[in-house]
Structure formats: C-alpha cells, structure tokens
Simulated scan of single mutants.
Amino acid sequence: MLAGGAARRLGGADKPGVRVGGRALLDRVLTACAGARTTVVVAGPRPTVRPVIWSREEPPGGGPLAALAAGLRHTTADRVVLLSADLPFLDHRTVRGLLAPLGHGATADGVLLTDADGRDQPLVAAYRTASLRRELAVLTGRHRDLAGLPLRRLTGSLDLTRIPGPVASFDCDTWDDIATARARIREHGHVLDEWISAVKDELGIDLDVDTGVLLDLARDAAHGVARPAAPLTTFLVGYAAAHAGGGPEAVAEAARKATALALRWADEDTPDATAPAPPAGTAPETRPDAG
C-alpha cells in the first residue's frame, strides 16, 4: 500500500490520516485488506487499525515506482494487491474480485479497476509479483534511479485485465473529494453499513453477523416492550454470544431467543384470541350493591 505522497492538492495535509466516517483513510483501506497474509505500507510509521510492515522508498517522496520497489522487498507472495491509501469506498469484496482472475490457469500479469470515466487505476489493482519484479528490473537497468518515474512506465508493459469500478476506485485528491466521500457514507443506503464497520474497527472486532437479524430484534423489543429495550436487548445478545464462544452462529442463536421472548412479551398485551367466549345471552357478572 502506497501512503507517502505529498498531497499537494490537499495543501500538504496528512492525507492518509484524513478521516471519512470517523476513520482515517489509511485505516479504511487496511480494513478492506484484512485478509492479506502480509500488509506492507510504504510511508512513515503511524498508529493504524491493525499491525502492518512499514517500508520507505528511496528517496522519501520518490514516487510510486520507487515506493512499489520498496514494498516488494517485504513479500514473498506470488500475487500482490497494490493500493493507494486514499480509497474511502474500497471493500474486501473488491479486493477478492481483483485477485480472482489471477488464479490457477490465468495468464494475465494483473487486474486493475477502471474509474467512472473508464481510465485505468493502477493503484487499485492486483498483480503477479514476478511480473512486477521483471519490469522493475528492466526499468532499473535503463534508468538506475526509479524516483520520479510514472507508474505507467511499468504497467504499460503488462498484460492487464480491466474491471469497471467507479465507486471502489474513487480516490480523495482534493478537499472536494473528501466532502463528497463524507456525504456519500451518510446517505440512507450506506450509513448503517459504514457505521457498523467503523464500530468494529474502533472496538477491534473482526466478526461478520447478519445485521438484519439484530435490526429485527431491536424492532420487536422496541415495539413489544418499550423503546429503550432495543439497545439494551441487542447489548445483552452480544454479551450472551461472547459467553457462548462468539461467532456469527452464537449471535444468531442469542438473537433468536431474545426475539422469541420479545414476541411472547408483546402477545400478553393483546386479548387472548383462544379464550372461550361467554355463552350467548349470558349477562356479565355484576357485584351486588353494597348498600
């Protein structure tokens, strides 16, 4: 992952540390790569959401080719995912989608996303490590110093597969881009997933659960018991799941039990439809006058 740019269009701000949805851009990209065996970040060290290997290009600020060469020194994998650190909408599904076409029997050197205008995004891509090392060796033989050379000098010689990815390839080069990203994650169709991801990062939780089950539970607890019961019940479900060993199955089972209880609770607040009706013509029982 390359995170050492100068961010000139952001006025020299620390771009990897700019927050979108409460999380640093770098941490958002690291979360999308959580399944990687080794994660190398080419930049100056900083606190991150999970451990990484730090590397530095020579000279610092020498550009993407120099940074790529520095990062490759720390991996023995046969495939690598090359990413910039300013991709707010990258997710693990996209990362897996980049790697899949490079599986057994494939011949391409790499797979990259194209943006909304159809342009190649070589910093949202997966490559065969051998192909990168081969082309880096060629360029080093020609120029000795990779500093300042554009990445297309390398990628232009590769056999690449392209996948449209207008959202995942969206990068934040300007403050307007940052504002756009911050606005999008608050839209109705995205805000819940974004919030759950942020909370899991903040708490150090790596657990995928069916949020729909929890939302249904919260609804039933709020409507059938009382509104404050919703957050308290979902907390207790999480606590119970942890005691049961954790994992999606434990959460689902605890949620099922709590949902059934909430429904039974709500049923008691309605007339019992199974109770026998009084015989026709029977007058309701009355108490005799006390006087």
Score class of each variant (00 low, 15 high):
Leu83Thr: 13
His74Gln: 12
Thr48Arg: 06
Val29Asn: 02
Pro51Ala: 12
Gly61Met: 12
Arg37Cys: 00
Pro45His: 09
Leu65Ile: 05
Ser55Trp: 08
Ala85Trp: 07
Thr31Ser: 09
Pro59Ser: 13
Gly12Glu: 10
Arg73Leu: 08
Leu65His: 10
Pro47Met: 06
Ala85His: 13
Glu58Gln: 14
Leu83Gly: 05
Gly63His: 10
Ala77Tyr: 07
Gly61Lys: 15
Leu65Ser: 07
Leu30Met: 02
Arg28Asn: 02
Asp27Met: 09
Arg56Thr: 13
Pro51Gln: 14
Glu57Ser: 15
Val41Gln: 01
Gly17Asp: 12
Pro51His: 13
Val81Trp: 00
Ser55Ala: 15
Leu68Phe: 03
Ala67Met: 07
Glu57Ile: 05
Ala85Pro: 09
Pro47Cys: 08
Leu26Lys: 07
Arg37Val: 01
Ala34Gln: 08
Val49Met: 04
Val52His: 03
Thr75Trp: 11
Thr39Glu: 01
Gly17Asn: 10
Gly21Arg: 10
Gly62Ile: 09
Ala70Gln: 12
Arg50Ile: 03
Ala32Ile: 02
Arg37Met: 00
His74Arg: 14
Pro16Arg: 11
Trp54Met: 13
Arg50Asn: 01
Arg50His: 04
Lys15Trp: 00
His74Asn: 12
Gly62Asn: 03
Gly17Val: 06
Leu25Glu: 01
Val52Arg: 02
Gly35Glu: 05
Arg50Met: 03
Glu57Phe: 04
His74Leu: 09
Asp27Val: 04
Ala67Gln: 08
Ser84Thr: 13
Leu65Ala: 11
Pro59Met: 14
Leu26Asn: 07
Arg9Thr: 05
Ala13Gln: 07
Ala77His: 13
Leu72Asp: 12
Lys15Arg: 15
Gly44Ser: 11
Asp27Arg: 11
Pro51Ile: 12
Asp78Ser: 15
Gly62Tyr: 00
Pro45Leu: 08
Thr48Phe: 01
Ala85Ser: 15
Asp14Thr: 07
Trp54Ala: 13
Ala32Glu: 04
Ala36Tyr: 02
His74Cys: 09
Pro45Glu: 07
Ala66Cys: 12
Val41Gly: 00
Arg46Asn: 09
Arg37His: 01
Gly21Trp: 06
Thr76Lys: 14
Arg56Ala: 15
Asp78Tyr: 06
Cys33Trp: 01
Ala32Leu: 03
Val42His: 04
Gly71Tyr: 14
Leu68Gly: 08
Arg79Tyr: 00
Val41Met: 02
Pro47Ser: 06
Ser84Trp: 02
Gly44Ala: 14
Arg28Met: 02
Thr76Tyr: 00
Ala85Phe: 09
Ala24Met: 07
Arg79Ser: 03
Ala67Thr: 10
Gly21Asp: 04
Gly11Ser: 03
Leu26Asp: 03
Glu57Gly: 15
Val29Trp: 03
Pro45Phe: 08
Val18Ile: 15
Pro45Met: 10
Leu10Met: 12
Gly63Ala: 08
Glu58Ala: 15
Arg28Thr: 10
Gly63Tyr: 07
Leu25Thr: 09
Asp14Ile: 06
Gly11Met: 02
Ala32Cys: 05
Pro60Ser: 12
Asp14Glu: 14
Leu25Pro: 03
Thr31Ile: 01
Thr76Trp: 01
Gly71Met: 14
Pro60Glu: 12
Val49Phe: 00
Val20Asp: 03
Gly17Arg: 12
Cys33Ser: 10
Pro60Leu: 13
Asp14Ala: 13
Thr39Lys: 05
Thr38Ser: 11
Ser55Asn: 07
Gly21Ile: 06
Ser55Gln: 11
Pro16Ser: 11
Pro47Arg: 13
Thr76Ala: 14
Arg19Tyr: 00
Glu57Cys: 14
Leu10Gly: 05
Val40Ile: 11
